[in-house]
Design a binder for these strands. Structure first.
Lengths: 254, 254
DNA sequence: GCGTGCGTTCCGCTGTGCGAGACGATGACG
DNA sequence: CGTCATCGTCTCGCACAGCGGAACGCACGC
């Protein structure tokens, strides 16, 4: 029963004002009388709201969602750093956390001149083809990358990297630089610079980025600001970057 | 069963990292084996996450919460206006919507020099003793005010208005000015200026405010900025303020 | 060792959840 | 207008899903 209810909740889509009972039944496969009954209970609790024939997700879910520690703690600590980065660059700022083989956007500060970026606060994107995701893969536990490779790499644009060897090599380079870039791998016209944010455990627990038009974003110009903000946020979270392997010939950053 | 699950979800509190099964049982009254079973199902779905003996709300609820039309549509439209107001005043900015006899905070941009304000994004406060709530009562359907009066007015600070007649008179004044103020009615040391935000239907669908220390906030200085932002947001939402009653002797604002 | 509290599992039983079908309302179309 | 399709709402027999007291092993403090 609980699964059925959540299946119904999962049938609501971004950007929709309202959905009818019939449409929810079609999407979820829950029979109409059952869906009708469950929606009635969900409505009692505030998880859905009803307007005539239309249902929409209810405010109670927003309230619950704001209690989620994984986003709340991060968002509270990160807010000033993100605001600073937004003000310094005037480009769209993102903050995301890893979840399975994807990233979940915890915060998005959209720039007014921003391109149509397929990200959304509370939304998900595959990790392997986003700057944020690659930063998280490069500095996360190896099992995270393995899960991504096991799940398979799917081409989303002509520039998506779908060869496991190429991705691994890119992640190694990201580890050397401490920065990830994205050039139209997840969406045409979009570029991004992302840096990992470290928690007390030593792995990247989040990543933050600047996103803009690929033919306009000066990645070299914004990269130091992104990394600065990420390092500052890492410190505020009680984390710090891992030690560089001694044999690395990476450039000195002292 | 669904009610039980939601009761368990409702037992999580703001600011907690994790809660044990035993504590959830104590708070919710759901017997331990039942709670254990339900939490297991909630975990499968991502609504809760587990770490040893600790449970916490899961990312899936954050994702769902970000789909809620009532906050999403408002937040997307309001974000630039709120950011402008924050930058212009450098004080804490709030945006809230009405729900029953309370306001729910949709967005909060905290100022670094802000007092300890008992508000929280996704949190609730009574309407009758908050600037935001009073703005919503003054410009909302009369049934909303009636529900508040029926529920009763409870003193929270020495300055809380608990006489229905005084509250109604204050709301009439707010309707004349188009602005609400709060002086330590919800929390000691806190002052606030709030303005209603109108939707296409003519009633206030939200309110926005500036909040600060009561002995430091120049309400007269920030009030025009608050009202400007609220009127701009109203226009962006396809709404506008109601006509002034012809018999009113309020000051002309042409 | 003992006591307390924890999370996990079991299993008989019952009442809750289920949904095909029926029904009235609505809207589009000829 | 009549017909058809789709909508949301309700019914009710029944079976099985949900329930939770009790038991158990583990951890911790005295």
């Amino acid at each position: 029963m609980l699964g059925r209810a959540f299946t119904l909740l999962g049938a609501f889509r971004p950007g929709e004002a309202e959905v009818t009972l019939a449409e929810l039944t079609r999407r979820s496969g829950v029979p109409k009388p059952t869906a009708h009954r469950l929606l009635g209970e969900l409505e009692e609790w505030g998880a859905v709201e009803r307007n005539g024939r239309g249902y929409r997700l209810g405010l109670r879910l927003f309230e619950l969602g704001q209690l989620v520690p994984r986003q709340r703690e991060l968002q509270e600590t990160a807010a000033p750093f993100l605001a600073d980065l937004f003000e310094a660059t005037r480009e769209t700022v993102h903050l995301a956390v890893p979840d399975g083989v994807e990233v979940v956007y915890v915060q998005k500060l959209p720039a007014s001149s921003a391109p149509e970026i397929p990200s959304r606060q509370g939304g998900r994107m595959p990790a392997y083809c986003t700057g944020l995701g690659k930063a998280l893969l490069a500095f996360g536990p190896p099992a995270r990358l393995q899960a991504v490779l096991d799940a398979g790499l799917v081409r989303r644009t002509p520039r998506t990297v779908v060869a496991p060897g190429l991705l691994s090599a890119e992640l190694a380079e990201i580890r050397r630089r401490g920065l990830a870039e994205e050039h139209e791998e997840s969406a045409v016209g979009i570029a991004c610079v992302a840096a990992p944010v470290f928690g007390p455990g030593g792995d990247a627990v989040a990543a933050l980025s600047i996103t803009g038009w690929s033919n306009r974003l000066h990645t070299a110009r914004v990269a130091p600001a992104v990394q600065t903000a990420a390092l500052a946020l890492s410190r505020a979270l009680g984390g710090r970057p891992p030690r560089r392997a001694p044999g690395n010939s990476g450039r000195t950053r002292s």
